[in-house]
């Protein structure tokens, strides 16, 4: 196991370096730059001075190495769009709302989805099964900005139960959390239902019944544990995908989160911020998949314990 983790950490490091090079090259391959004439009408001399100040007149590889050297010391530079703070300060400020709302969305949505999927699998072809299918289909097919708009329309405009938008008051969190939870609920309801049905059709479940175990024990100990294997592996990647914010949800509910910066950093050619965001996402996904693999091995003895007598 330790060998496995070490090997994976080495491959994470390689992935990280490879991705950083690719992103850096792609970022600079797009024509134009941060100080283009139509965005920023300054004289040629001023532009040259600004470029030199930011190191943008250097050859690409020097820029890359300089940036990565900084990264290794946790210095991600200063965002061009907000020069009063460092990239790190900007991220830690903007990430909080995204992490809270998106994270809570997944943490609430995933268990709900699991419960719904279980209820559907245990009562196949009943109304709850159809409900689960409907929720799964709706959750996965309707775009999140439509859901958000509907939520605002129904709960804020018509019923006037909840405020439509804003931050930081907790009662304003409810609607965005529901919007974020739609996908985890749908995904987990679908995964859980099919995993449980698949497990329950396996011969060993008949054996468990034949030896006199109660139905509860069969479902909660045996079926659930076998079905959990695929469920666990999708959790962390989903968490990261949601907890880094969605530009749509954050725009709809006017949340000062991270989502908007993914777009604005590219639009305004904010190289340091763009790089930092991409590296952060890459790193988190690498770690998430590593952890998923470890958990997968822990709950699946066929991986944990080698074969053969």
């Amino acid at each position: 196991m330790l060998g496995f983790i070490l090997r994976r950490l080495v491959s994470v490091a390689f992935t990280f370096i490879a991705v950083s090079i690719i992103i850096f090259l792609m970022m600079h391959a797009v024509p134009g730059g941060p100080f283009d004439a139509n965005d920023m009408p300054v004289s040629e001399a001023v532009r040259a001075k600004m470029m030199a100040q930011l190191g943008l007149d250097q050859p690409l590889y020097v820029q890359y190495l300089r940036y990565m050297w900084g990264v290794m010391q946790f210095d991600f530079g200063v965002p061009y769009q907000s020069p009063g703070e460092s990239v790190l300060q900007l991220l830690s400020r903007a990430w909080v709302p995204s992490l809270v709302l998106g994270g809570l969305g997944v943490l609430i949505g995933a268990p709900l989805g699991i419960l719904l999927g279980m209820a559907a699998a245990l009562n196949r072809n009943s109304w709850i099964d159809y409900l689960a299918s409907a929720v799964a289909t709706i959750g996965l097919t309707i775009p999140v900005f439509v859901t958000s708009m509907l939520l605002i329309l129904v709960f804020a405009v018509w019923l006037k139960w909840l405020p439509a938008s804003g931050w930081p008051h907790p009662e304003r969190w409810i609607l965005p959390i529901i919007a974020y939870a739609a996908i985890p609920v749908a995904t987990y309801a679908r995964y859980t239902r099919s995993a449980m049905l698949d497990t329950m059709s396996r011969p060993f479940v008949t054996v468990l019944r034949a030896k006199g175990l109660s139905e509860q024990r069969i479902v909660f100990q045996h079926v659930l544990r076998n079905s959990a294997i695929p469920l666990v592996t999708v959790f962390l990647p989903m968490f990261i995908g949601t907890a880094t914010g969605s530009i749509f949800v954050e725009a709809m509910f006017r949340i000062p989160g991270l989502g908007a910066y993914f777009v604005s950093s590219i639009e305004t050619r904010d190289y340091p911020l763009e790089m930092a965001l991409m590296l952060m996402i890459t790193f988190m996904y690498c770690i998430a998949y590593l952890l998923s693999d470890i958990v997968y091995a822990l709950i699946n003895p066929r991986i944990r314990v080698g074969g053969a007598e």
Partner: peptide, 15 residues
């Protein structure tokens, strides 16, 4: 008590 045809699939693999 019953015993079944295929012992490979008759046990729960995770216990």
């Amino acid at each position: 008590a019953m015993i079944f045809q295929d012992p490979m699939t008759a046990f729960d693999p995770v216990f």
